[in-house]
């Protein structure tokens, strides 16, 4: 029997607020279950029938370039926008229903806390909106602010906070209801190294304490460091979904050396070098793709010495997300199950 009212305007899937899962059997392991989730913006298909599930205790990475559909997916899962088709369930409750919203914490991309309120004021406001009893809210807010190193600044208006502090406060606000599932949309985007590392450390700690974390990022390394599994979204579709280790084994082949000489060199001349499997001309530079960059560096230096060439620049390049996409798509790892 449906218990949530039809009072709110953001029903994700149709008018029914009933939280019962229609087809899939809910296993306690599956905290988030998504089937055929789709969203259009006019003619643009932003999210294209995606399927995945997130298991209990998992930190799940959602990767993709700008415009891939990551934020749209998170917004559908957190009940901010309504899906055009498909279904999503969080802990067995329809995503977007009041019951599902009650159990999640959210750090949206580009969101702000109330600048005129203090950190404490923002936390108490959130706690009241989640119906957390006052004493419990105060105790929890104190602990969270302490953990995120904001306790000393708790009475300061948020407008005086740095960007890193504001982001930490948003994370505090997402935790004040003690959620079982945490959605974070690019939480380290635009932050300095220290702030990013601090937030990553916090996420690791929260995950170790049993919280399920759904993390969207365009930073491959961040996802690699943190996530148990990663879904790569491209043009609204899941191009790959696997553990970082398995994804990395594909992407590792895409390491490359970029070199420029004082005289033009034909790419055909470098193709036969050992361990090089592809050569591309990139402006005045030549890029050699390899799985053994240290060997190729030696080969390139030997080649230059042998042909009496001077090396202007020589760089080893980590695989870009775009490289990973190309590789994964070409290999057909698509996991749109």
């Amino acid at each position: 029997m449906c218990e949530d009212p039809g009072m709110h305007g953001h029903h994700l899937m149709g008018e029914s607020e009933c939280c019962c899962h229609p087809e899939m059997s809910i296993t306690p392991e599956n905290i988030i279950e998504v089937q055929g989730l789709t969203k259009h913006y006019g003619d643009l298909l932003a999210v294209d029938h995606i399927n995945f599930e997130v298991k209990s205790g998992e930190m799940f990475g959602f990767l993709g370039p700008n415009g891939a559909g990551k934020t749209t997916t998170v917004r559908m899962l957190t009940g901010v926008i309504k899906a055009d088709a498909g279904s999503a369930f969080i802990m067995g409750y329809e995503a977007g229903s009041l019951k599902a919203k009650q159990r999640i914490g959210v750090v949206p991309e580009l969101a702000n806390a109330y600048a005129d309120l203090s950190a404490w004021g923002n936390l108490m406001f959130m706690a009241e909106l989640y119906g957390v009893p006052k004493k419990q809210a105060e105790q929890r807010a104190g602990e969270i602010l302490e953990n995120l190193q904001l306790y000393e600044r708790r009475n300061q208006p948020v407008r005086e906070f740095s960007k890193g502090m504001k982001q930490r406060l948003l994370l505090c606000m997402a935790l004040v209801n003690d959620p079982q599932v945490l959605f974070l949309d690019e939480p380290t985007s635009g932050l300095d190294v220290q702030s990013s590392r601090f937030i990553r450390g916090m996420l690791r700690e929260l995950n170790q304490k049993g919280r399920v974390i759904f993390l969207t990022t365009h930073d491959m390394e961040e996802a690699n460091q943190l996530c148990d599994r990663i879904a790569i979204l491209n043009h609204g579709k899941i191009a790959a979904l696997d553990t970082p280790q398995r994804l990395r084994s594909t992407i590792n082949r895409l390491q490359s050396i970029e070199v420029s000489f004082d005289h033009p060199v034909a790419i055909e001349a470098l193709s036969p070098l050992p361990d090089v499997y592809m050569v591309k001309k990139m402006g005045d530079k030549i890029r050699l793709y390899t799985h053994a960059p240290e060997n190729v560096v030696v080969s390139v230096v030997d080649y230059a010495r042998f042909h009496n060439l001077r090396i202007n620049t020589l760089n080893t390049l980590a695989p870009s997300l775009e490289d990973a996409f190309i590789e994964l798509t070409e290999k057909g790892i698509g996991h749109d199950h």
Binding site: M7, H8, G9, H10, R75, T78, G79, V80, L98, K99, K101, Q102, I104, V106, P108, L110, A111, N112, A113, Y114, A115, M126, L129, Y130, G131, L170, M173
Partner: peptide
């Protein structure tokens, strides 16, 4: 303008609320 709305909407409250 101050980008506080999305956080508000993702709370367990409706637009009507």
């Amino acid at each position: 303008m101050s980008r506080t709305l999305e956080r508000l909407i993702s709370c367990p409250i409706s637009t009507s609320t």
